[in-house]
C-alpha cells in the first residue's frame, strides 16, 4: 500500500475554473479536457508568476522540495499537452487545504483570521477597534537569508513604488485601494 499524500497548502483558491482553446481546427466535442489539479496550478503560479525558487515555493506549500518539483513538472506537462493538442484545461481536484493569516486585537483580546487575502483588514470584526496586529510568525529560515529590493505595482489602480522588504513574502498593500500589491523582485546580498 502506498503512503498517504501530504495535503498541500494553498494561499487562495484560483480565480478561474479552466481555459478554453479557440481556432478553426479546434473541436471541443471530440477532445477530452486536461484536469489540472489545484496544487499544480499553485505550483505553476508560485514559480512562473511570483518568480520563487522551488525551495521557497515548497516551504510555502508545506511539502518537500522534490515533491514540489514533481508537481511543477506535472503542471507544465499538462499545460503543454493542452496547448499542443488544443484541449480544454479544467482546474479542479487535488489533495489541498487553505490557510489564512491570523490577527490579534489588542482591545478585546480576540484572535481572528482574514478569509480574503486580497483585501487588508483594518478593524477588529468583533469590537471594531483599529488596534490589530498580525499574529503570524514569519519563517526565519527564509527571512534570514535574503534582503530584497522590490518594485511593487498595484494591479487595481496602477500605483507603483520601489521599496526594500525583509523578504519576498512580505505583504504590502496599496495605500489607495488597500489591495495586495504584486511585483518583480531583484535579489540583493543573497547569502
Amino acid at each position: 500500500m502506498s503512503r498517504i499524500k501530504t495535503p498541500r497548502k494553498l494561499s487562495n483558491p484560483p480565480i478561474i475554473r479552466g481555459f478554453n482553446p479557440y481556432g478553426p481546427l479546434v473541436d471541443l466535442t471530440k477532445t477530452e479536457s486536461v484536469i489540472l489539479h489545484y496544487e499544480e496550478f499553485e505550483a505553476f503560479k508560485l514559480c512562473d508568476y511570483d518568480h520563487l525558487t522551488h525551495h521557497q515555493a515548497s516551504i510555502l506549500m508545506h511539502i518537500s522540495r522534490p515533491t514540489f518539483t514533481r508537481i511543477y513538472a506535472s503542471a507544465r506537462s499538462k499545460i503543454a499537452i493542452s496547448f499542443a493538442e488544443g484541449r480544454q484545461i479544467e482546474v479542479e481536484g487535488g489533495k489541498i487545504y487553505f490557510e489564512s493569516d491570523w490577527y490579534h486585537c489588542n482591545q478585546c483580546q480576540s484572535h481572528f483570521n482574514n478569509p480574503d487575502r486580497m483585501l487588508q483588514l483594518t478593524n477588529c470584526p468583533l469590537c471594531g477597534s483599529e488596534q490589530i496586529e498580525n499574529a503570524k510568525q514569519e519563517d526565519k529560515s527564509i527571512t534570514d537569508r535574503e534582503e530584497i529590493s522590490m518594485h511593487l505595482v498595484c494591479a487595481h489602480c496602477g500605483y507603483d513604488v520601489n521599496m526594500q522588504v525583509i523578504n519576498r513574502y512580505s505583504k504590502t498593500h496599496c495605500p489607495h485601494c488597500k489591495r495586495l500589491m504584486r511585483g518583480n523582485s531583484v535579489l540583493k546580498n543573497q547569502i
Binding site: 483558491p13 487553505f98 483580546q109 484572535h111 481572528f112 470584526p125
Partner: peptide
C-alpha cells in the same frame, strides 16, 4: 480550520 478557510468563513476566537 482549513474547511472554513476554503469556504471563506471568518473565524473569531475569544480569549474572554
Amino acid at each position: 480550520k482549513p474547511i472554513l478557510d476554503s469556504h471563506k468563513i471568518q473565524m473569531i476566537i475569544l480569549s474572554n
